[in-house]
């Protein structure tokens, strides 16, 4: 039986390793911000072409 994968480091301390993001919380906030931007874009798109 091959061993299980080695345990991950605690999820709240592992850095995301992305430039400009020190924590995963910052990544999540960025993704949710992007989602808000997409919704705003869709609303604007609708308003422009309706």
């Amino acid at each position: 039986m091959s061993p299980a994968l080695p345990p991950d480091p605690p999820s709240d301390v592992e850095p995301p390793g992305l430039p400009g993001f020190r924590s995963w919380r910052a990544v999540y906030v960025f993704v949710l911000g992007w989602f808000v931007l997409v919704v705003v874009f869709l609303a604007l798109f609708m308003r422009i072409f309706s």
Partner: peptide, 9 residues
């Protein structure tokens, strides 16, 4: 858009 196909939100 005028025919109501672009109502995204």
């Amino acid at each position: 858009g005028a025919l109501g196909k672009l109502n995204g939100v």
